[in-house]
């Protein structure tokens, strides 16, 4: 790859990871501009990873003031009210992240991504959203797709000990490593809206139960006008009713969306199971690094993790018409 060489300082700091992904990948990383909307246990893990990796810049958006719930699984904010009182999550996280790597520009941006000017998105190569409604995710995903430049879109959500990552790289070309050199490989991704519209009976056999559970809960939150983490055990009867409706409409046996799984997620409410955050934030970090550097097979297009069985599974749920 052409362009300026890494500085001696960069070579020394990034030595161990250059040994993993090479100099060219490191140079691409150092030019990448990342946006994260929503700061919680999983997204701050992602932020840490990507700042350490040495991206060009990271912009944070989350104007919420710090609360007990917002603090959990967040190691970027000291448990000290005199420090955090009256300040927004993005400001506080921004301050800590800057210390992690002086070579990365970390910025806090005020406002709501869903309301932003379209042009705002053009500043970024990667957009990560979390902690918002399905509607917002779909809107931001669509905005990314409408821009002339390709903007990679990721949605990540952690509920109790379960996590979901959605990836939309649109049309993505990369050099796939083969045993005898590399071959150019094209992948075509579906938007979030298209992906979740795919009839359940058309899905691959043995799709993760989490996929269905997440859809049921998401739909329920949407109908109630609530955000992730704002449900509780009291909602279980209504959620089960919705499960039945959805399963009937999609002619899927309800056993694919176990009640125990839904209950587990609802009982936890806003609580995340902390060790799941570095796992999801780690996988997402790895995926974003792959997508920027063009090295390695990117995940297509859903990832699931559940601490209950310990599996980290990839599901390809794409609209065939978009391929």
């Amino acid at each position: 790859m052409d362009g300026e060489e890494l500085t001696a300082q960069e070579t020394a700091l990034y030595d161990r990871q250059i040994r993993v992904w090479g100099v060219d990948a490191q140079k691409r990383l150092s030019k990448a501009q990342i946006l994260v909307s929503g700061l919680n246990g999983t997204s701050v893990e992602f932020c840490k990873n990507i700042v350490l990796a040495g991206v060009g810049s990271l912009t944070l958006m989350d104007d919420r003031l710090v609360t007990e719930d917002a603090l959990q699984a967040n190691f970027l904010i000291p448990r000290d009210e005199t420090v955090y009182s009256g300040r927004s999550l993005s400001e506080l996280c921004c301050e800590s992240l800057r210390d992690f790597n002086p070579m990365v520009r970390v910025l806090a941006e005020k406002g709501d991504l869903a309301q932003c000017e379209m042009e705002f998105l053009d500043k970024f190569d990667v957009v990560v959203v979390t902690g918002c409604s399905l509607k917002t995710k779909i809107e931001i995903n669509e905005k990314c797709r409408e821009r002339a430049k390709r903007i990679a879109f990721y949605a990540i959500e952690c509920r109790d000990s379960c996590g979901e990552i959605f990836v939309d790289l649109q049309n993505y070309t990369y050099a796939q490593k083969k045993s005898d050199g590399t071959a150019e490989c094209h992948l075509s991704y579906s938007s979030l809206e298209d992906a979740i519209l795919i009839p359940w009976r058309n899905l691959p056999r043995k799709v993760s139960k989490l996929y269905f559970a997440m859809r049921v809960i998401e739909k329920f939150e949407l109908s109630e006008g609530r955000n992730p983490g704002e449900l509780s055990n009291f909602d279980l009867p209504a959620v089960l009713k919705l499960r039945k409706e959805l399963c009937d409409a999609q002619s899927l046996n309800e056993s694919h969306v176990p009640e125990t799984l839904l209950e587990r997620i609802l009982v936890a409410g806003p609580m995340l199971y902390p060790p799941v955050c570095p796992i999801l934030g780690g996988i997402l970090g790895q995926e974003v690094i792959k997508a920027i550097s063009g090295k390695g097979d990117p995940l297509k297009n859903f990832f699931y993790f559940d601490a209950a069985d310990g599996k980290g599974v990839i599901e390809d749920i794409s609209n065939p018409s978009s391929i």
Binding site: R16, Q17, V20, L52, A53, G282, G285
Partner: peptide
Amino acid sequence: HAVATTNAI
């Protein structure tokens, strides 16, 4: 050969 993401996971 070491990267932050694997260690976090």
